[in-house]
Write a protein that binds this DNA or RNA. Sequence first.
DNA 1: GGTCTGCCAACTGTCAACAGTTTGCAGTTG
DNA 2: CAACTGCAAACTGTTGACAGTTGGCAGACC
Lengths: 260, 260
Amino acid sequence: MTVTPQPESDARAAIHRGTVSRQTEAILRDMVLDGTLAPGERLNEVTIADSLGVSRGPLREAIQKLAGEGLLQLKSHRGAFVRKYEPREIIEAYELRIALELYAVRLVIERADDESLAALRVLLETDAPGTPGTTIPPTPPLDPGAEVPRTAGPYVAELDFHQRMVSLSGNSAITAAALKVNHRLYLALTHTERTQARREHANDEHLAFLDALCDRRTADATRLLEEHLQASLANTLSVLGLEPLTSTHRSTPSEDLHHA
Amino acid sequence: MTVTPQPESDARAAIHRGTVSRQTEAILRDMVLDGTLAPGERLNEVTIADSLGVSRGPLREAIQKLAGEGLLQLKSHRGAFVRKYEPREIIEAYELRIALELYAVRLVIERADDESLAALRVLLETDAPGTPGTTIPPTPPLDPGAEVPRTAGPYVAELDFHQRMVSLSGNSAITAAALKVNHRLYLALTHTERTQARREHANDEHLAFLDALCDRRTADATRLLEEHLQASLANTLSVLGLEPLTSTHRSTPSEDLHHA
DNA sequence: GGTCTGCCAACTGTCAACAGTTTGCAGTTG
DNA sequence: CAACTGCAAACTGTTGACAGTTGGCAGACC
């Protein structure tokens, strides 16, 4: 109803919905994101191909594509596994997200019109967990199947708001990159709950940020967004029982990240 | 015989150098980046598979992966084409690059050790076009075949310096994203020459930026880098005979980039 | 002469079968 | 009884062949 390109509109459209390869890719992505395939799990090609009613060829092509998006991990002669993110990788993905959003904010303030900015506020008010998949940005440069599934994880609304904000930059390259890293973060954090306190804080931060954004106060918006993202990352880390990477490495001169 | 990953190091290593799929992927990427396959050109699967001595299966898997990286474009039932970037897309890719590098600078200043920073200076001094492929970052999270080819285009040294700087952030996600967008920009701009004046300016800007970076003056380094990147983008646009997007949209409230 | 229609060739998308590798297990041996 | 070796099953990697679609070309028709 909202933004998702509805498949059930026409039966003929469903038949012609791209090739088997693309359909398989979309279905696989959903299966990975909604947990049907658990992180670390191995994908048996014949089993999955059989259950989807397709051959191994298109399935393998879909697997290649998802591996390129960071959702699967390929091991030579061992097959494909659902990507299991290490704590360090979660932090790195988060930092990538921060990099994208911080610059996107500047573009949004420069370019977005008032209506679009105002429309963002609606996303914060309808914070109920019942809102179904509104995750697709208006101009998705990725494939049409790239959508966050309907199983409402704790991060869906959060990611959705941010993704929409980024898409207002009008830059489809940045938007696509953000969507991809958001998918990865969703996969990595989908079973991570946030504390209630954090949840309320997050909403306040969103509102403050949005106010600055609508007033086109670039410096304030940027600062508020970064503080919000850093706080969100810190909460995630604490829930996961990890210590923040961002404060430990400055003392040690080398050796710290040279081995990766 | 053309671009094949060097087999003469060890016969056994050549045999076990990944699967045919991966080799094909690396070779294809090189062929796209070095212009063997021209932008807009269509890839005939049987011809290419034949010339590489592989079957269509692995070739198609490689094509899927390169399409995911933005180097190829897939058209349903029409095949794969070398991606031909529109002016707008070039600008968007450039902005994505800016977003990544601006945040990377902060991480570099926080985390990189003095030696690594000093090592960057060497890249600027050996500006001769004879320096062979040093394009791989220390920690390439992409596949081992992902390198800017040896055909020294005008942007190779430029991109190389920036890529190395980004890799010093220690963040492999950001580094991988930067590498990917740099590949795209290389493909889009490989036949674009820079003015001599711009060339000298660029070097000066690099040096000034590097000084600020080594002194860990975050604000200065960030500002200098952004000015440098904006100037570089402006030069590229002028060479291409385009007008900058970044200055036209602020006045018009909407309608400017809503159609994309 | 221009335009439209129907056919044909080329190519992509898909499938089923073959070959090589890995992993786990059973048997054997010290 | 533990550890090592060899085998076998399962699965991935690869291949060649089949079917459906697209685009162009020739011929007919207006």
